[in-house]
Amino acid sequence: MDRFYRTLGLDLPILKHIKLYYVGMFYNLFLPGSISGDGYKIYLLRDQKTTNTKELFQATLLDRLNGSSVLTWLACVFLVFSDMAKLYTWLSVLGWLGIIFIFPIFFLFSNYLFPKFKEIFISTLIYSFAVQLLQVVCAICILKALSINSNHYDYLAFFLIGNAMTIIPISIGGVGIRELVMLYGLQFLSINKDEAVAFTLLFFTVTAITSLIGLFFTFSMSKELQNISKN
């Protein structure tokens, strides 16, 4: 996100970016959907002199799409090697198509709609890869902790697809879209549903506990940004 905001001339100290990130995560816990925290970040930054709300929205949206494209690409990689693809050949074909075309399509899409950010496309994609791979590491650690020793590629594929789809701000029956993708996707395999539920709930718990850090910055963040805008 820092690279996108800097392109707009919004040069915040790195510590402010970290605080803002955690504040956004915290608001994602209880506001509708899973991108509501991004909206709150735009709200906090709207008074900065160097940019406007429209540009902030574009930067924030592109940052989300950037992460989702990487998540989807990684999901396609795991899908190709999953047991699911062995049962359904069309899934393997779909996975390979995703691996080949996701980034070229995203490049054309982002450069057409958001030409201002063209020069940072590659660098932000690399940063996004690093962040999303950490999610994969977290998921693998949870699988190991639960002693789940099979179907790892399937778990990771659906986990990443669910994460990518969190850009859609909906929740059904109080259940997040990530959990729905996991539960409905894995039902096509002979996987213990209790293990699948435990996996999704543990990841949500880790995310929730981490997001609570944002609570400590929520009340001070607005004042800090106002002070920056006055300088």
Rank of each mutant, 00 (worst) to 15 (best):
G185Y: 02
E119V: 09
F216E: 00
L146W: 03
Q135S: 13
I209P: 11
I172G: 11
S68L: 08
M1N: 06
R46C: 08
F26E: 05
K41N: 15
V131R: 13
S229E: 10
L143F: 06
L87Q: 13
S222K: 14
K86M: 11
R3T: 03
L74D: 02
K118W: 03
I105Y: 12
L61W: 01
G173Q: 08
L62E: 01
Y112N: 07
F57N: 00
A139M: 09
K86D: 05
F159K: 01
T7S: 15
I35A: 13
L61P: 00
S220C: 10
S92I: 05
A164I: 09
T60K: 06
I105R: 03
Y153V: 01
L186R: 02
F109S: 11
L180V: 11
S147L: 13
L12I: 04
I161N: 01
S150D: 13
S82W: 06
I140L: 12
M84A: 09
D38Y: 04
L45F: 02
S69Y: 07
L125R: 07
G95N: 05
Q135V: 14
L94K: 00
M84C: 03
N149C: 09
L113Q: 12
G174A: 09
E224P: 00
L87H: 04
G33K: 14
W90Q: 11
P115Y: 14
Q187E: 12
I99N: 03
L56S: 04
I99A: 09
L45A: 12
S222N: 14
F158K: 01
E55M: 15
A157G: 05
E55S: 15
I172L: 14
I14Q: 10
Q135K: 12
A59W: 00
L134M: 10
I167S: 07
L108E: 09
N111R: 15
S150H: 07
F158Y: 15
K54W: 09
Y127C: 12
F4E: 03
L61E: 02
D11I: 09
F219D: 05
G98F: 07
L180T: 01
G95Y: 01
S36I: 14
N192C: 10
A208D: 05
F158M: 08
K144C: 12
I191K: 06
F129C: 12
R6T: 08
A130I: 15
Y43P: 07
D63F: 07
T200M: 07
I161V: 13
L97W: 09
G176E: 05
A75Y: 02
W73R: 04
Q226N: 12
S69E: 05
R64D: 02
R46Y: 10
G9V: 07
T210C: 15
Q187I: 15
N28V: 08
S222R: 11
F26A: 11
G67K: 00
I172H: 11
L97R: 03
L79E: 00
I42D: 03
I177K: 03
S34L: 10
I140T: 04
M165E: 06
L31R: 02
G185T: 12
Y5Q: 02
S222E: 03
L31S: 05
